[in-house]
């Protein structure tokens, strides 16, 4: 095995003390600051979710008029149109949902609403179907 080294001394090392000092003072200031990390599962209430967040969706059957517009704009085939006693209506399979919110935007009667709930986890697939 051959080991060969080449050097390129093309630059000179020069630094000033106060350049390092500005970073050092920032470091020491951060030592006494509150940590930036949110310990998520333990400190669940500290997670700030703003108004208008696109989370788990809710559906109000009484407002729906069965126009199927939500079905037409949904990009990930989350929505299935079924017929019940009041006529056509959507059924949402949240396991497929990408939370793009296009159905909420296009719904003419505001019967779909995306809530602030961001933990959509379930051990049973049936719990993820919104009716």
């Amino acid at each position: 095995m051959e080991i060969s080294i080449t050097f390129s001394y093309n630059t000179v090392f020069d630094c000033e003390v106060d350049d390092i000092m500005s970073m050092l003072s920032e470091l020491l200031r951060n030592l006494f600051k509150k940590r930036a990390t949110v310990l998520y599962p333990e400190e669940r209430d500290k997670v700030h979710v703003p108004e208008g967040y696109r989370g788990k969706l809710e559906f109000y059957r009484e407002k729906c008029i069965g126009c199927t517009l939500c079905y037409q704009v949904c990009p990930s085939y989350t929505i299935e149109i079924v017929v019940d006693e009041k006529g056509k209506r959507p059924v949402f399979n949240l396991a497929r949902c990408t939370y793009c919110g296009q159905c909420e935007d296009i719904c003419p009667t505001k019967s779909i609403h995306l809530t602030k709930q961001f933990e959509v986890i379930s051990l049973d697939k049936k719990d993820l179907v919104v009716k």
Partner: peptide, 28 residues
């Protein structure tokens, strides 16, 4: 250290994006 600081401060912008558009990353 710089990596941690910039990513921490990026959170201000991410929170604003979340407040304006409803999502942090895929804003649409």
């Amino acid at each position: 250290t710089m990596f941690m600081y910039t990513w921490r401060d990026r959170e201000y912008v991410m929170d604003m994006l979340e407040a304006i558009t409803g999502n942090r990353v895929t804003t649409e």
